[in-house]
Design a protein around this nucleic acid. Structure first.
Lengths: 199, 199, 199, 199
DNA sequence: AATGAATGAGCCTTCATTCAT
DNA sequence: AATGAATGAAGGCTCATTCAT
């Protein structure tokens, strides 16, 4: 069947589409993909159930769009921090800022993060979207780091790795709460790893 | 109402319970938790639908058990590697072994890994189980590292962190396949981080 | 979670809701509450399974509504008889009319009557609904009796009792068919009791 | 299929059968017929699930037997009261005793009473059993009343009616609890009806 | 473009009954 | 006679998607 999905050109339509994505973003974050139903998305977005299928092929299609704004919400603030870090760069300080911001972001987005990753495993399209968007981010970040004077070999690999480590730590902090872990101490260790990585 | 779940004591019953867990393990891995239904689990386990509820409280209860064997499958081989690493310890070599093993394990378990992490976000019981099992593992690993002569401050934090980093890298390698990343190079960087961490 | 039950305002919706109640009424009457399933109710009402849950919270909720119309069907005709009894009131004649009508009604509703009473025993909400609706009826009947000139002490108690006796007798007549009972004779006795009660 | 139901002749078997009936009696009383499952009955009776089907054809068959002991439990105490009422008979006093006893019995058996009546509506065999046992009781009671010197025409009809009225009032008292009803007053009215009936 | 009532396949779970031991 | 694990049909309910308006 040919796609009947409208590409909204009028402003009001774009606005409505965004409202749906925002509602999806919120609900997927709060109760996960399978905990959310389309009626609820529509209700939260202030539109009718039917029209959702005017803008999106199916529920998964909403997820794909949510994924886009998720990546934005998570990585843009980090890019901003890197871009605006005072010169000359104090790597340790920068690492700390990035980590703290990531934790803050993770507190809001952790559920969605996991939901997305889980679906990426099952759903090829979600996975592809994930990868392609991560690509862009890594590239951007690498450039930014160069711009602020951080020069090192294997910059892409290191950026990627650094992002993963920080994500991982943030998740640990926000979620797992192992009582025997001293998270402040752990944070310092992470900072040192990052410093070592980019010095 | 009191739980009517049988605690199987006879060998044949335990075997049957394990068959169901194994079926759950496979199906959750292949198509995720929500992509699996109980009839399918029963069919794959070679039992009737009804008896599943003789051994488990509900579908989620199966997941909890799958989680346990997942943790075992993922961490036990690593414990083995650490225990059997030749003395005196070559940290870089050990790191390499651990990473390679983790990748190998992740190739089999990555989907389940994400499924479980995603559900941990939504489901408090799953999360609790996850945390408690991780606790045990971290403790064990720390002891093992001490036994093979690795002494450092903040050992628990570092072990935890190291596990996360390796996991993260393994996931990256198995899944994301960003074309511009040189994973061999990345692996070396990870190894160096680990060496730095425990030296 | 807030109730998602629609309160149908449009005529067509109300009609549909009533169709479901009517289907429930018929099926509960024919085969009891537990002998009826929701698919069957939907089929009989000419709607889909799903929409039943658009109008009712669950199967029991249908029962509650059926209870309402049951009470109406059983008591309204009696109220009508009392209201339209020729003046001056011939108590014996009135009693006879009420009894005959009750028998007639019971012939149609006896099964449901028992089903409802049985569930009231188990289900607090059903019981509450039963009581509250009976309250209204008793009050109404008492007023009507006063209006047609029947004055006595303890009117509420007597009305209640009278209703129970007549119900009981009607049930006896319709259902139990004890061969050795002369129901015509019994009817006269009941009439005399009622006359004695309100004279 | 030919009936494989054993007619237990050995004492131990009879005892076991009775235990099952007793368990059924209790559970049907507590949570109704549909709220009880056979596993629970077996457990309460201290026997295995399987053997239940050695003594009874199916779950309903248990109910039939429960019905028998129910009738005994409810009517025997009443017969006893009538038999042992002091001579010469004070009808009002006797009525009062019967009513109070019925209330007491109803407090224990009301749920079962309704359950049984409800099933009688749907199930011909249950209904037949009900009728046949009621027959016996009515006959007995009539004889007893004669024996203690109560002579009246239409004795059977009146006994039946009286039983119904008392039952009905007991139910009212135990269950419905309409706040505006003065049950003590109502009881007196019922007594007077009974006196009037048999004087 | 929009509505929201309607659809119906599919899911989790229960339980009367059977059967291998 | 007895056990209790096992069966599998059936039931209540949800929800992605469609459709009449």
């Amino acid at each position: 069947m040919a796609s009947n999905i409208r590409v909204p050109q009028q402003e009001r339509s774009i606005e409505k589409k965004n409202k749906i994505i925002q509602a999806g973003y919120e609900l997927f974050s709060e109760v996960g993909y399978y905990g959310t139903n389309t009626v609820e998305i529509a209700k939260r977005a202030g539109v009718s159930t039917g029209i959702v299928y005017g803008y999106f092929e199916d529920k998964r299609d909403i997820l794909i769009c949510v994924l886009e704004i998720y990546i934005d919400k998570v990585y843009k603030p980090l890019a901003h921090i890197i871009d605006h870090s005072p010169q000359p760069v104090d790597l340790y300080r920068l690492a700390l800022s990035v980590i703290d911001k990531t934790i803050e972001l993770h507190e809001q987005n952790a559920k969605l993060h996991n939901t997305l990753h889980s679906l990426a495993t099952t759903d090829e399209a979600v996975n592809a979207q994930f990868i392609s968007l991560e690509n862009k981010i890594t590239e951007q970040m690498s450039k930014q780091l160069l711009k602020i004077g951080i020069k090192t070999d294997n910059i892409t690999e290191k950026v990627h790795l650094a992002m993963n480590i920080v994500q991982s730590f943030a998740h640990e902090t926000v979620f797992d709460s192992h009582s025997y872990i001293d998270y402040e101490q752990m944070k310092k260790i992470v900072c040192n790893i990052l410093v070592e990585l980019f010095k």
